[in-house]
Nucleic acid binder design. Structure first.
Lengths: 228, 228
DNA sequence: TTTCTAATTATTGTCGACAATCTGATGCTT
DNA sequence: AAGCATCAGATTGTCGACAATAATTAGAAA
């Protein structure tokens, strides 16, 4: 389901899912938009059957909300939604850290460290460009989540919750000093995992996520007050 | 999605979803069975379109596993699966308790207490009958989950994870002294919530779930050794 | 006999059309 | 004029058939 995941047989529903999902996450289809099945079918040049399959999966990631016989709408971003989402994310990624400290192999840890160094150099080159930070952060968290080795946890975080997380981050932006700080926080977390100190990794991850939440929350508040 | 939930428009896909889901949870369709779309369509007397909608939702609750172009199988119960599932359940229901202690109204708490008393008397009448215990337990946990007031948490627990939990419980059984002890544990949890002691409610819930896990684990081990 | 190949069969994925339901506008009643 | 009922339009839900892919079996070669 994720970009890095290998899929044996790619079906039309899979393709259109990725396209629509990206369009929603990146705001190309704005939040709150009414989804019209015939319109999307024309737009992506396929029948309604695979489209509906894709919509079902989008509902699963909370990117759209469907009501029977009435249609679907793209989810709206809100402060309450952000808080509920990040409340859960703190808890689940905290758990992922404790499990990762227990289950990750030395090689997996080394790979994450190499990844961080690579991201750091990439970040230096593309100073201030948020896309790389976004992709790098997602990748780091994804590795730790996989390291938990708990299939249900992996599924919930990376297949269900993370696209919504990305939607908040992409549309409300990583900005300011957080971009550079995140690297240090990532380093500290992987160090704790390498030391098999699950408690510490848990704590650091919760703080890392809480800081990210405050950042987005502030953006939402500013946007809300300036418009309303 | 749950039985107690009110749904404005009931569609054919909804109906067949409930039917198949119940059949899987209760073991009428055995674990590991290959799902044949044409066969199920004949059996439940509808076309494949709403059936596939139902299958997509069953995949979401981890009751079936699909591989593209190859079909779907009913999930197999295993010790590793049970541990992964309950690991997550402990964490999420622990969180639900902390949030419930914060957000549940006095009236909601009173309703849960009334529910427990009602279940106790029902239990006395139907001594040893596991169905009522099953339903009562699910109902109690469901109330606490709702009390968290976190829509994502509610969705994950009650719409995605709980049918699989019920599948383990129904097929591997609540038995022995746990049936009567569970009531006391429920009482203690709701008392902690009533006292707004989220930490304690969290701890008690984790123990309650861990005890339930040990119970099922033992059944799985016995079954595994006797058959293999 | 075993193994690889190839055709057959069955299953899943996709399509276009029809039926049921909801939304919005129009006209009537009070 | 306000509110409600009714009707037209559009949208979702469902159906049966076709196309594409995978599983299976038969057959030939080693």
């Amino acid at each position: 389901m994720l970009a890095t995941e290998f899929k044996e047989a790619i079906t039309a529903a899979d393709r259109v899912l990725v396209q629509i999902r990206t369009a929603i996450v990146e705001g190309e289809i704005p939040a709150g938009t009414k989804i019209s099945e015939p319109e999307l079918a024309r737009r992506y040049d396929l029948s309604r059957a695979p489209l509906r399959e894709a919509l079902a999966r989008l509902e699963r990631c909370h990117l759209i909300e469907r009501t029977p016989n009435a249609g679907a709408r793209v989810v709206k971003l809100s402060i309450e939604g952000l808080r509920s989402l990040y409340q859960l994310r703190e808890e689940l990624e905290g758990l992922a850290c404790r499990l990762a400290a227990e289950h990750m192999t030395e090689q997996e840890i080394a790979e994450v460290r190499a990844l961080l160094d690579q991201h750091l150099s990439t970040q230096r080159v593309h100073e201030g460009e948020s896309y790389y930070q976004e992709a790098g952060d997602v990748d780091f968290h994804y590795r730790v989540i996989l390291g938990s080795k708990n299939p249900y946890l992996i599924n919930i975080l990376s297949d269900e919750l993370y696209f919504l997380v990305r939607m908040y981050r992409v549309q409300l932006g990583m900005n300011g000093p957080r971009v550079s700080r995140a690297f240090d926080e990532h380093k500290a977390i992987i160090n704790a995992i390498a030391n098999r100190d699950g408690e510490l990794a848990d704590l650091l991850m919760r703080r890392h996520i809480a800081a990210s939440k405050r950042n987005i929350e502030q953006q939402l508040l500013q946007q809300g007050t300036s418009h309303g």
